[in-house]
Amino acid sequence: MPKTIGIPRTLAYYTFFPLWKVFLEELGLNVVLSRQTNKNILEMGVRDAVTDACLPIKIYHGHVADLKDRVDYLFVPRMISADGRSTFCPKFLGLPDMVRFSATDLPPLLDLEYRMRRGRFSNFLFFQTLGEQLGYPLRQVSRGYLQARRVFQAYREWQYAGLPPEEAMREAESSGRPRLPAREVKQHAGLRIAVVGYPYVVYDPFINANLLQILKDAGCEVWTVERVADSRLRTMSRQLKEDLYWYYSNRVVWAGLHYLSQLDFLDGLIHVTAFACGPDAMVDKLLELESRDRGQVPFLKITIDEHSGDAGLVTRLEAFLDMLKARQRPGLTPRV
């Protein structure tokens, strides 16, 4: 019987899952995901996690609870850095410890440090250590790693081309890299809205009350952080005196700045943030002030919490869209 490894379906999952999954499966392990976030998971998370934690961390605890009885190992890597330039939010840094001391009856945790520096080699070291821990020979580990990288690359490209994470994963695994010209910007009759925020907030329909779908149903074209090229993000980073210190936050700010500069392309910018998120207090202020200084692209902040399912969010969203429609200018040409 191959061992089963459980991966909580939130936080860094949205960015790195294909890399982890393909690697583990290439070793012949059985990868199990927790269920889609649902009410039960939220409740378990609220029960287990420390009261003052932000919603995404609570939900992570819920996913752990969902998995713990049906797997041999829990994959809870300590995400420290992904670009050698910033770290993750301190809650990511302490995540394995939070989980360990908040939940009970856990299977063994795979909690090794994910600390990327420049270059690919450090990435390999992570997987080498992981393979070693699980008792696989180097040759098999290397093969698995190469395969995982390939799929991961394709995944990023699919996301860039506009697929949401889960679809991008499916495509990357089944058909490899996107063959079409990476991106096609069509004329679009409705509004173009950029939604920036952490992937685990933007792409989890349960916690954001299905925000993206609501926008799509209203005829909007939605653009996210993942649809801005890394090179473009780096360019935008030079507009700030100082980087923020957190990986996801930087990407949100940079993407936000990018979208704010797309005046004749974009109709509005939405920042989605979780209740009591520490880094976002900074991120949101930066975006708000930048958008006010530039004064062209309307800006809306949406804070989600345990009860965002209610009507308030939808009402605010509708009001925002109405306002945008009233000022919509015809004949816009895309500039990407």
Binding site: A49, V50, D52, A53, C89, P90, K91, L93, G94, D97, M98, F101, S102, A276, C277, G278, P279, A281
Partner: peptide, 16 residues
């Protein structure tokens, strides 16, 4: 402080 990130992490271990 309310929303203090490191202290929230620390607090999660306090009961233990």
């Amino acid at each position: 402080p309310f929303t203090c990130i490191p202290e929230i992490v620390a607090k999660s271990m306090m009961p233990h």
